[in-house]
Design a protein around this nucleic acid. Sequence first.
DNA 1: AATTCCATCTATCGACCTATAGAATAATTA
DNA 2: TAATTATTCTATAGGTCGATAGATGGAATT
Lengths: 215, 215
Amino acid sequence: MIGMTVATLPTTRRNASQRRRAPEIIEAAAMVFAERGFHGATTQDIADVLGIRQASLYYYFSSKEAALELVCLRGVEGFFETGKAIAARPESAQKRLSLLISSHLSPMLDRGNFVKVFLNERQHLPAESRRRIGRWSRGLERIFEQVIEEGVTAGEFRAGLDARLVTLAVLGMCNAASSWYLKENKDVPAIASEFSNLVIYGLAIRPAKRRPTRR
Amino acid sequence: MIGMTVATLPTTRRNASQRRRAPEIIEAAAMVFAERGFHGATTQDIADVLGIRQASLYYYFSSKEAALELVCLRGVEGFFETGKAIAARPESAQKRLSLLISSHLSPMLDRGNFVKVFLNERQHLPAESRRRIGRWSRGLERIFEQVIEEGVTAGEFRAGLDARLVTLAVLGMCNAASSWYLKENKDVPAIASEFSNLVIYGLAIRPAKRRPTRR
DNA sequence: AATTCCATCTATCGACCTATAGAATAATTA
DNA sequence: TAATTATTCTATAGGTCGATAGATGGAATT
C-alpha cells in the first residue's frame, strides 16, 4: 500500500518488531499492578517506573484494562499446557501430582508479578477476557482433579477423599506462595519439595494403623 | 450502669447505642469491598446496597479508609484469641492442629465477606492500622508454627520438616477457601475434615515403608 | 537530502469520586 | 406538645485519573 515499488514487499520491509519496548512496558505494569492492585494503581505510577510521560503509555496499550489483560495473559500462559503434558505422562499419580506442584510453583521465579496479578486482579478484567482467561484456570483445576482421581482408582491415594476439595487445597496452597515468596527466604525447589511431601503423604494410603506415639 | 435510679445520671440518659444502623452499614461495606475490592468499590456502591444517599454514609464513618479498617477489624477479630486458646490445650499436636484448621475455617460461615476483605484488601489500609492489624496475623502464624514444631519434638510429626513452610501451606490452603466457598457447594465441616486429614496424614510419621502399589 | 516512520512529548477534556456544609426530616424525650 | 437529638437529604467543592489530539524530534529508509 505505502512505499511499494514493483512486486509485493521487495525491499527489506520494516516489519520488524514494532513497539520494541513493549515487554519492558508490560513488565512495569505487572510490577505496579502487583504492588497496588489494578484499581489502586494509576497509569502515572507505571509511567514513573519507566521514566516516561503518562500519556506515552497509550502508544503501547489502548487502555488500562488492556494492559491488565496483557499482564494476566503472561500470568497464565504455559500453566495449562505444561500441566496437561505432565498429566499425560506414563507415571504414577503420586509422581505426576508432585510434578504438577513443582511446575505450578516454578513460574514464580521469573514472572512472579505476572502470576500474582493474574491471581488477584483477573476479576477486574472486562467480562469477555475474564471468561476467556477463566477457562484456562478451570482447565488446570480439572487436570489436578483428574490426576488425584486416577490416584484413588489406582489405589495410590486414600479411597473416599474428595478430589475437588483436595484440588482446591493444593492450588490454594501453591497460589498463596505468590504473596509471600519474596518476603520469605525460601527457594522454589525447597517449597516444592515440602509441599509435595505434605500432599503426597497426606493423600497416601497409610500402610498400617498405629496409635499416635504416646509419650 | 444502665437504668440506675438515684445518683449520677438522673434521667434515663440516652447513652444507648448511637448509630443504630452501624452494623448494617459496615456489613454492606464488607459486601461491596469483597466483591469489587477496596479501590474498585465506590461509596456510591455501598449506599446503593443500603438504599441511602452516598453522603449519608459519612454519618457512620469518617472516610472510606476508616470503613475498610472497621471491616478488616471484624475480619480478624477472634482468630488470634481462639487460636491461642486451642494451642494451649493439653492435647496432642495432631488434635490441636486439626482444631486450629477447623476454627480457622469456621468464620467463613457467618462473616465470610469480612474475612475475605481482610485477606485481600488489608494492604490498602493506611500505614498505621495496617501494621497494627498485621501484628495479629503474624501472631496467628506463630501459633500454627509452634504447634507444628511441638508435634515434631513430640515425635508426632516427621522430623526435618520446615515448620514455617508448612504453616504457610496450611494457612494458604485455608485462606483460599474464602475465595471459593460460596461458589463450591461444600459445607465448612466437610472442608475442615478433608483439610485436616490431608495435613495430619501429610505431617505424620509414616509407620512403615511400602512401595507404591504396582498394578 | 528528502521522506517516512517510530517514539515520546505537551496540553487538556471530561468523567468520576470522596468528602464537606448545611438544610430537612424523623425519632425520642421532657 | 415542645424541645432536643438522631438520621438522612441536597448541593457542590475539589481533586484525581484515564484517555485523546496533535506537535516534536530523532532514526531509518530511499
